[in-house]
Structure formats: C-alpha cells, structure tokens
C-alpha cells in the first residue's frame, strides 16, 4: 500500500480520569488522507474528534503514535497546517481584513504590504465578503460572516492541509448552507487537502470525497471509511436525486444511530484501519459506470 499524503499511525490518546486512573479516548487509530482530498470525520460528541484534530494541527501531542505529512513527522504547529476553529478564532481587536493579513503576513513574510492586502482581499471576496464589511471588527459581524473570515484566513495561507473543527456548528441552517457552498467553491479553486470535523450528515455528504466514521468513546475507533460516490460539482438540491444519495445517507444514519454504540464496546486490535465502504448503485442499475472515472476519486487501499 502506498503511503498516504497524510498518514495517521497507531494514534492513542489517554487522559487522567480524575480518580487517579486513566481513560482512553481512542487507541491505535490509523488512517490516511490523500493529497487534494476532502475528508470529513463524523462521530458523536465526545468521541475524540477534536482531540484528533488538535494532534493533526500539532497543538497537542498524542499519548503515543505518529502523524506524518508528506513523509515527515508532525511535531508542533506549523503554517503548513491551517486550522479553522469552531469559535473565537478571530482576534477581536483586529478588523476582518487585518485578521486575514495577520495570517498572510506570517505565511509570506517576503511579500510587500500591498501584495498582502491584495491577496487577503481576494480571498475575503471568494467567501462573499467585500466592501465596508472587511473593515469591521468581528464583534460587528454576524456569526456567519465571522466564520467566513476564518475560512478566508485559512485558505489565504494556502496550507498543505486545512483542518476545520465543526466550522458551522454555531450557525443557523440557512447561513450554514451558503457558507458550505462558498467553502466548496474556494476548495475547488485551490484543490486544497481538507480534513473537517462535523456532526451533520448532509453537510458531510455534500462536501466530502470520503467520510470517516467514529464509534462512541471511550476507546473510540475510526471504524469505517465511506466513499461518497456522487460526482462533483455537487449541488445541494440535485445530489438528493442521485441514486447513491439515500443509500449512503442511510448507511451513515444507521451507523451513527446504532452501530457507533454497538461497536464501541469492542476492544481494539493492534492496528485499527477503518473498513473501506463503497456504495455505488449506479453500477448495478445500468450495468456499467456512467460517470467518468476522473470525477470519482479513488479510495485509499
């Protein structure tokens, strides 16, 4: 098996349980993410998604195991790995534009001030922020606009890997929809590798090439890797008509509703790779694959 662009190997995280003992959030979790891939990770709250992401970001160290990106072991945070946090990641004393230039100037220190501003303004425009709004402080922006600024900051830095921790968790459904569309747009322009945490099944199907499913904690596992066999460009009103949509959705709902709990009691083996799941009804229905192969990204393994 070829090494993935991002490879997570035997990651284990334990915390003291406050009673003198330890509890294991997850043990020996292993999976890979390919270059240019958009991967979502789904799981119930508390199963350890943020913990995994913080380790990928280099913000915290695992109890054991390694994360390798491009063949190099991740240690400590880096500009190569951009992060969009759920909340509060904008600096409230800076305007929207300055929040973005702050990142861009750190990423490209050799650039002139003018170039930094041009680049930042362009990325703010990509997520629909233009004109007066970019000169306002976060407190004067709506929740949706704030998260747009975070996304613009992360993409403007052109990191090798972009990590998003429930970026739309605090937004209402309508705003969430628009920003999802914007995220897709920016992503398709840049072909960035994205690793995103969410607890919204529809969001994951709309955005991801592949969805990783986590069982409930403690001792959570990354149990399955589900390929989203729906061609891009996707559109929220049209994907529901795709023959694979409900099959995939039902599989995910079933997992989160039932099997995530059933599987959680099982003790883990030495090397838990997620099981690859590929659901494609278009093959069966028409005998041959009607989609051009290039639109579907290959599943790892």
């Amino acid at each position: 098996m070829a090494k993935s662009f991002l490879s997570i190997e035997q990651l284990t995280q334990r915390y003291p349980d406050g009673k003198g003992g330890e509890f294991t959030v997850f043990e020996n979790a292993s999976f890979g993410v390919e270059k240019g891939e958009f991967v979502c990770i789904l799981g119930h709250s508390g199963c350890g998604k943020s913990t995994i992401m913080n380790i990928l970001a280099g913000l915290s160290d695992p109890t054991s195991g390694v994360v390798k990106m491009d063949g190099f072991e991740v240690s400590g945070p880096s500009l190569d790995r951009g992060v969009v946090f759920q909340n509060y990641s904008l600096l409230p004393w800076l305007t929207a534009l300055k929040n973005v230039t702050f990142g861009v100037a750190a990423r490209f220190p050799q650039w002139t001030k003018v170039k930094v501003i041009e680049h930042s303004t362009a990325f703010l425009a990509k997520v629909g922020l233009t004109g007066d709004a970019i000169h306002r402080k976060p407190s004067q922006l709506s929740g949706g606009m704030r998260q747009r600024v975070s996304i613009a900051r992360a993409f403007a830095n052109e990191p090798k890997l972009l990590l998003l921790d429930e970026p739309f968790g605090a937004l209402d459904a309508l705003t969430r929809g628009t920003i999802q569309d914007e995220l897709i747009k920016v992503w398709s322009d840049t072909d960035q590798t994205v690793f995103m945490i969410t607890h919204d099944i529809d969001e994951a199907i709309l955005l991801a090439d592949r969805i990783l499913l986590m069982t409930n904690g403690p001792m959570a596992q990354v149990a399955e890797s589900v390929e989203i066999t729906i061609p891009r460009p996707r559109n929220r009103t049209q994907i529901v008509e795709h023959p694979n949509y409900y099959a995939i959705r039902n599989h995910l709902v079933q997992f989160l509703g039932q099997r995530s709990a059933d599987l959680s009691d099982q003790t883990s083996g030495a090397n838990n790779r997620p099981v690859d799941v590929r659901i494609d009804l278009t093959d069966m229905a028409e005998g041959d694959d009607p989609e051009p192969a290039s639109v579907l990204r290959a599943v790892e393994g």
Partner: peptide, 14 residues
Amino acid sequence: VREDWVNVARTHEL
C-alpha cells in the same frame, strides 16, 4: 488570554 487566540499565534508560527 483565551487559549484559542494563543493557538492562532501558534498555528501561524509566531
């Protein structure tokens, strides 16, 4: 100071 803001500094390698 909010840890998130310090993390922003850390992820930007300041």
